[in-house]
Nucleic acid binder design. Structure first.
Lengths: 273, 273
DNA sequence: TATAAACTCTATTCTTAGAATAGAGTCAAG
DNA sequence: CTTGACTCTATTCTAAGAATAGAGTTTATA
């Protein structure tokens, strides 16, 4: 019976020589015999069966650790159980990837919204669909504070997102709410920030769909100014404000500068005159 | 302005201290200032924006390398292109996983076929659906050789599978074909082995669906014996053999022994009397 | 002010599944 | 006997940190 040198064995099985040496090192497949003098490895043709199985299980995405464990088990029914677990694992991975893909899509759309947005200060009437939000009350009125406070508030929200086991991918567009009662007096007072979420639960709130007056702005510090323009417009044209005012961060602009640059969209729900 | 120690910065952002140190090491995010005496790192609250972006892109499944590249680009439109590429990459990953899952499912079914198979030698009449195969002619009649030759033939098939860029996950149940003309003379002569494939192409062949006489056997060396029983049965009961004889390896049994142990299913297409 | 607790520093090792490399020794064909 | 092909061990590298040790620093409390 001819013995196969490591190179021949490798060529026969479409693997590299290093791979075979590595498999020996971790005890996954040991050569049939090793020359005591030279240390040369020699394989038997029958060992291909094991190598096939290793490669097959690798194709299924299993780790060499699992594969080794399987060989230790020596039970085919047990293997079916292992496959079941593995399928579950694959399923989870696929779902994770699907979430990522959806998030990437969402971000692209946000960039598109920025690129195609109307001029700064151009007021529009829009139909908005119902949205769900998860909000966090920081207990501080950020309209009276600077970017630092806002930053700390965002940290608080991030913390809550983690605690509530919400997907961090939703942390890309954040918003703030100014409640209707304060809005009536043009009192810029808000302590609440939020993220948009997909699934409802006991901690989420609903932003009603309907008609909104909106305006875009690329300077976070000029929010009040644009907010007032929006309210003036409503009054002049006879629109009645019927709900809470929202400031949505559509996208962060050059994420590169030393400070945040936010592209925001202000939104207030109205009833037509 | 208060400087944030590495621990505070980490806590504020739900990352570990090591992570921040690591990001500095690879130049992804450098602390605002480093004390020359003590080497203590201090961060500025505004740096949270960058950290948010890093974490967000990580959620999308991007590598720190890509993230760094993005920060170097400083262009939001370019980022949209990058997201498009990333979506394509995710899509491929999902497809790979789906293939793996299907293969795991297939293997489980094969195990099920083994577990629920009839006794060795029990002849059955079955309806089989059409199947596609990719076959390889080794140029050697394996009925005249031992397991070694069979093993070398399988290596040849594996080689062809690689060359033809067929999915290696299909390499788990292999089969051999004995053509009808040889079958008529009970001449066990075959040089062809194959794997089952899903997609047709110019190199694939079709095994017609229809009525088959089948028998299972857990000893590779007794194939001829069981094959003859199958043919005897056909003759005695008036079935006419109308196509090629197939020997399908359903599953490899204890993949653990020094030699292959194959559980095979012999199949011959017939016309009812 | 002294002390203890909490914090931070650098440096090293570990994780997967091999790939790449260097320098030395071995095998097979002509 | 030579030459080219092959093989050996050993080390380093990949990604994204986690874990650890041992030493030094800051902060809070007494």
């Amino acid at each position: 019976m001819t013995k196969l040198s490591i190179g021949k064995m490798a060529r026969l099985n479409q693997v590299t020589v290093q791979t075979l040496r590595y498999y020996e090192k971790i005890g996954l497949m040991v050569p049939d015999l090793v020359d005591g003098e030279t240390g040369y490895r020699y394989y038997h043709i029958n060992q291909c069966a094991r190598l096939d199985m290793i490669q097959y299980m690798k194709c299924l995405g299993m780790s060499l650790e699992s594969i080794k464990h399987h060989f230790d088990q020596r039970d085919i029914q047990e293997f079916s159980v292992m496959l079941e677990d593995h399928k579950t694992w694959i399923h989870k991975k696929i779902e994770e990837l699907a979430t990522m893909k959806a998030a990437a899509q969402q971000y692209q759309e946000n960039i598109g919204r920025y690129v195609n947005a109307p001029e700064n200060g151009e007021i529009q009437l829009e139909q908005m669909r119902e949205r769900r939000i998860f909000s966090y009350d920081a207990g501080v009125n950020f309209y009276e504070s600077g970017m630092d406070t806002w930053e700390y508030m965002i940290r608080g929200l991030k913390n809550q997102v983690t605690i509530a086991h919400l997907p961090m991918v939703k942390f890309c567009n954040v918003g703030s709410i100014l409640r209707k009662n304060n809005l009536a007096d043009r009192k810029y007072y808000s302590t609440e920030i939020f993220i948009f979420v997909d699934e409802p639960n006991e901690t989420t709130e609903i932003l009603p769909g309907g008609t909104y007056l909106t305006v875009h702005c690329d300077d976070f510090y000029r929010e009040k100014e644009f907010g007032n323009q929006l309210l003036d417009y409503a009054r002049v044209h006879g629109y009645e404000v019927i709900g809470d005012y929202i400031c949505e961060v559509v996208v962060e602009l050059p994420i590169f500068e030393e400070e945040r640059k936010l592209f925001i969209k202000l939104q207030v729900p109205v009833k037509r005159p």
